[in-house]
Design a protein around this nucleic acid. Structure first.
Length: 679
DNA sequence: GTCCAATCATCCGC
DNA sequence: CGCGGATGATTGGA
């Protein structure tokens, strides 16, 4: 049955006849709500209504290439020959889809979305369509420890060591904190993705591809890599209101909601003689439309009443979770509420939003299907908590074009160049928009760097397939496809080899993620004290591709001349020392050549990403080749899951030399481990 | 050990 | 071809 999604009671029902509730000794909460103890919500609340029409103006010009080149020439001392902007060949030589593929995209943007937005479904029947239950059969077969199993065990051990989870103390498993929760979730998601990647490429192992979410979680929990295993009423240490999860198992691992499936989590408390169940959290998996009256109220259905095997329906009983909710109501205890919403890009998947603490205000019995009794509970959100679920509802309205919002300066910064619009919003001061620049989604090379001539491209007409050992692109990536079909990077490597213009695969090939344009709805916004910044309307999965760093490739000597000028803040320098990712599968390799990008005059959303000492985004070098030359790109990916409207930041790194010529800037990231400065 | 709950990827049919 | 519904192996905890 649909959980937690129903309308109001049709009428009052005499509860005492149905609910066999003994009189309670006390109506005081057993636990204090712990309201003040949670850290502040770091997401930015949505701006309220904005002026009708929005009165957009266009502070940025989007000229043709020759105009762009002359603008460029007027503003900087010609670090790049002008002819590099003139011919289409040069513009596309970097592997950004190539002329034929760019045809529909050049100025129309959204019209070409179908070419890039849809992920492939393989045509190879052997790879994608395994008979259901095959893994189960294999699991029960003769126990042969395959080489794949061994490599997965090694992989897990490396993850655990990298994130210092090999031997968690008992108290760390029992009670967590923000840092520990973060480590557990990062490890889980990295391992889950790597597990999927290995299993889809080689052969199936039990649970590997069918349910990597389960397999990864049970493996980690067996090793003790979990936290907050002690159940508690109220806030969970390290989990903040607004945090999101993409799997039930994630909530399990950090003590948010222990049951792997059930919607009601409860614990038994001892009060003098009696043991009494008390609810600690619920997961409401209803869709958007049929929730309670507004975002702060939830009508939740009790559990049970349906026979698992044959779907037979009967009256729900006041036991287990239902009894716990009833007790929590009478004690006026707080209950954590997790809202499940549909994950639009994934289709079948769900996203779970921690919506903070609620109290149950009333309960009643409704008649469900076939006239059988269903318990209903009215949850009301405890006031004073940061916005979470209601923010999602607001964003839905912004997308639908209904509702209004203050501070919208520009509905689409990219003028249709990107696959999705990028709005510009300022609701904090009088700035009317970022300084002039030309929006471009591509990285423009004057000339390619000299690298060994790459091998020829692939001939995967239906898109590259995981497990196709003959595909040269799979081979270049160590036998794997680096991304899944959603555009999530599956494995941290020192270098991703994407398909290039010499490959015969279509633009929606899984190995062309960074060329396929934006997948999440981004917004350039005015921060309180850091100038302009970047954030997303959409939730972002761990490892999801966000954008590349577009601009003009310049050489190192040109960069030196620009340091100290206003130009400096729009330079991306891949030769800096970046804090290591906590884990890469192939150790650390230098970026193959000294790539420096200027986005001062021409660039994309990436130029607005601010520095943080605790970033939620990292970058990886991405290679594409056109059959003769190799071009390096910079791809940005999320580290963990990122809730909507949280600022996207990455670590700017430290210049390896010539620090003296660089101005040290004061860091305002406000994270606990802030260094206080950045370059 | 047994039962519970409803997940999630995949399949299947409209 | 794109969905929504059906299917079934699956899990931690009571």
């Amino acid at each position: 049955m649909e959980r937690g999604a129903n309308s109001n009671p049709t009428g009052p029902i005499d509860k005492s006849r149905v609910l066999d509730v003994k009189p309670l000794r006390s109506l005081k909460p057993i636990f204090s709500p712990q309201m003040g103890s949670s850290a502040p919500f770091s997401g930015v609340p949505p701006a309220g209504p904005f002026a009708p029409g929005g009165a957009p103006f266009h502070p940025f010009a989007f000229g043709n290439d020759s105009q762009r080149a002359s603008n460029f020439a007027n503003t900087i001392p010609s670090p790049v020959p002008l002819n590099s902007f003139r011919t289409p060949d040069t513009q596309y030589a970097n592997g950004d889809a190539g002329p034929s593929k760019a045809r529909g995209r050049a100025r129309k943007g959204r019209a070409a979305q179908d070419d890039y937005g849809n992920s492939d479904q393989g045509e190879d029947p052997s790879s994608g369509r395994r008979p259901r239950g095959s893994s189960q059969k294999r699991a029960k077969g003769p126990a042969n420890l395959s080489s794949i199993q061994v490599s997965i065990d090694d992989t897990l051990d490396q993850f655990l060591r990298a994130f210092k989870l090999t031997a968690l103390e008992t108290h760390q498993q029992a009670d967590g904190n923000k840092e520990l929760v973060k480590r557990v979730l990062l490890t889980y998601n990295l391992f889950r993705r790597r597990l999927f990647q290995i299993c889809e490429a080689k052969e199936d192992i039990p649970g590997g591809t069918n349910r990597p979410d389960l397999k990864a979680a049970t493996t980690l929990m067996t090793k003790g890599a979990r936290t907050n295993s002690t159940k508690r009423v109220g806030t969970v240490p390290g989990v903040e209101v607004g945090d999101i999860f993409f799997f039930r198992m994630e909530m399990c691992m950090v003590g948010m909601h222990a049951p792997t499936m059930a919607g009601i989590d409860y614990m038994t408390v001892k009060l003098s003689a009696d043991d009494e169940p008390v609810a600690v959290s619920i997961v409401s998996s209803g869709g958007y439309e049929d929730d309670g009256e507004d975002g702060d109220v939830l009508i939740y259905s009790g559990q049970g009443g349906v026979q698992r095997k044959d779907g037979q329906i009967f009256d729900q009983k006041l036991e287990r979770g239902n009894l716990a909710l009833e007790k929590s109501l009478h004690r006026a205890n707080v209950v954590r509420v997790v809202r499940g919403v549909k994950d639009v890009p994934n289709g079948t998947g769900k996203i779970y939003i921690y919506d903070g603490l609620y109290k149950i205000h009333e309960s009643w019995v409704d008649k469900g299907k076939g006239g059988y009794n269903v318990f209903k509970y009215k949850f009301v959100r405890v006031p004073g908590q940061p916005q979470a679920y209601t923010l999602w509802k607001s964003i839905d309205q912004w997308k639908a074009g209904s509702g209004t919002r203050i501070g919208v300066i520009l509905p689409d910064l990219t003028s249709g160049i990107e696959t999705l619009p990028v709005s510009v919003v300022n609701d904090v001061d009088d700035e009317k928009g970022p300084a002039y620049f030309t929006y471009s989604s591509t990285l423009r090379y004057d000339k390619p760097f000299d690298l060994p001539v790459p091998s020829s491209g692939c001939a995967c007409h239906g898109g590259c397939q995981a497990g196709d050992a003959n595909c040269p692109c799979v081979q270049r990536n160590g036998g794997f496809l680096p991304y899944n079909s959603l555009g999530v990077v599956l494995n941290y490597k020192s270098l991703i080899h994407e398909c290039g213009s010499s490959c015969l695969c279509p633009p929606n090939c899984r190995n062309r993620v960074s060329q396929a344009g934006l997948k999440v709805r981004l917004e350039v916004f005015r921060t309180k004290d850091k100038g302009w910044g970047l954030r997303s309307w959409d939730p972002i999965r761990s490892g999801m591709f966000i954008c590349q760093y577009a601009g003009d490739v310049i050489d190192a000597s040109s960069m030196m001349e620009l340091l100290g000028s206003e130009h400096e803040e729009y330079i991306f320098d891949a030769t800096r020392a970046y804090p290591p990712l906590d884990y890469t599968s192939d150790g650390f390799a230098e970026v193959p050549f000294p790539l420096v990008i200027s986005a001062k005059n021409s660039g994309n959303v990436a130029r607005f990403m601010n520095h943080s000492c605790s970033p939620n985004v990292f970058w990886q070098p991405v290679l594409r080749d056109n059959g003769e030359k190799t071009y390096l790109h910079v791809g940005f990916y999320s580290i963990g899951h990122i809730p909507p409207m949280q600022e996207l930041t990455f670590d700017y790194g430290i210049p390896k030399s010539d620090k003296a010529t660089l101005r040290r800037k004061r860091c305002l990231c406000a994270s606990l481990n802030c260094k206080g400065y950045f370059y």
